[in-house]
């Protein structure tokens, strides 16, 4: 690792000030992705600002929403009784990610900030526009089995690796942010970006902005939910495709639905049109198949990931069936 300076921040303001000053300063919370990237020379901050002492760990359920502090640990959120009872999709998604050791380190804010696991991003001897803008996309024409089928550009076809974020985008979460210019709220779906011409930008946070919390409005998705993760081994692997599915059922009729996918795009991928197609329908495999077909509009595969064009809709149907049958 390159040498860097280290500061412990005792208030959000001190943290923001410390990061805003330097050209290349970063917050560090769990560090599970940042240190990984620093060891590979992918990120080389001059200063790390330790935010673990900030009072941002609380999980609070109020009458209209769940508030999760940005520093709440992934494992803590997953095991929280309120989360398990009222937002079980989030709990399932969290437990599908990483290992218990990493979930004990990784924070909610850090999970949102994790960067792609694309091999070309990680290998400084190969081109990557995200790591080094203008160097080219190694994955296009390269090894791209894990890569995007939605929303990619000719600059970048990487995917966002999080499971938690797939559940959060499905549940209409809001990101609370504070920065040099004050506080603001970002709808979760607008937090992460598509690569476009600036794949180096993963999200819409401004310089010095700190995620302080995530809020999820209360919802009826407490029972008919399922988080399906298809991966190359049974655990501790990133998704080939994952699906967060939540249904509000009236008997066998779908009153409302939430669907999102992971492992398919540069950001957690909400399937709004597919959700719409389910409303008012009966919860049958046939109707799920229709929704899956809707979800796959505009999907585009590359040399090694065309299987996702089949795996993704199959996974949507499977997840919906699982959500229905609980």
């Amino acid at each position: 690792m390159n040498p860097f300076s280290f500061v412990r921040a005792n208030s959000p303001k001190a943290a923001i000030d410390a990061v805003s000053k330097g050209d290349n300063s970063r917050f560090i919370a769990g560090g599970t992705n940042l240190l990984d990237l620093m060891k590979n020379g992918v990120m080389q901050p001059e200063k790390l600002v330790d935010i673990n002492n900030l009072p941002l760990k609380d999980i609070q359920l109020s009458k209209d929403k769940l508030h999760i502090g940005a520093l709440a640990l992934n494992s803590t959120v997953a095991a929280d009784n309120q989360v398990k009872a009222q937002f079980p999709l989030l709990s399932q998604a969290l437990l599908a990610g990483a290992s218990q050791q990493l979930r004990n380190m990784a924070t909610v804010g850090g999970n949102m900030m994790q960067r792609t696991r694309c091999s070309y991003f990680y290998d400084t001897a190969m081109p990557c526009n995200k790591r080094q803008p203008g160097s080219g996309c190694g994955a296009i024409g390269g090894v791209n089995r894990m890569h995007a089928i939605f929303g990619a550009s000719d600059k970048c076809i990487a995917v966002h690796p999080s499971d938690m974020c797939v559940a959060l985008v499905a549940l209409d979460a809001t990101v609370l942010v504070t920065g040099p210019k004050g506080e603001r709220k970002i709808p979760f779906a607008d937090f992460h970006r598509l690569p476009g011409d600036t794949p180096e930008k993963d999200n819409n946070l401004g310089k010095g902005e700190l995620i302080t919390a995530v809020e999820i409005p209360n919802n009826p998705y407490t029972k008919n939910i399922y988080y399906l993760k298809v991966r190359d081994r049974a655990s501790y692997a990133f998704a080939l495709v994952s699906v967060a599915a939540a249904l509000e059922l009236d008997g066998n009729v779908i009153k409302s639905a939430r669907l999102a996918m992971g492992g398919v795009a540069h950001k957690p991928w909400r399937l709004a049109a597919a959700e719409q197609s389910l409303i008012g329908k009966t919860a049958t495999e046939e109707n799920f198949r229709v929704a899956a077909t809707v979800a796959m509009e505009n999907a585009k595969a590359y040399e090694h990931n065309s299987f996702k064009l089949q795996l993704a809709p199959n996974s949507i149907v499977t997840a919906l069936l699982k959500a229905t049958s609980v």
């Binding site: 091999s119 001897a125 024409g141 390269g142 090894v143 089995r145 049974a234 501790y236 692997a237």
Partner: peptide, 28 residues
């Protein structure tokens, strides 16, 4: 699960780590 994948254009491994080269875990 196991396959070391090369990008033949560069002659470099694309999964030279325990996250991408999948050694079986307990759950397998």
């Amino acid at each position: 699960t196991e396959e070391a994948v090369l990008d033949h254009r560069y002659g470099r491994y694309a999964n030279n780590n325990f996250g991408d080269y999948h050694v079986p875990v307990h759950a397998d």
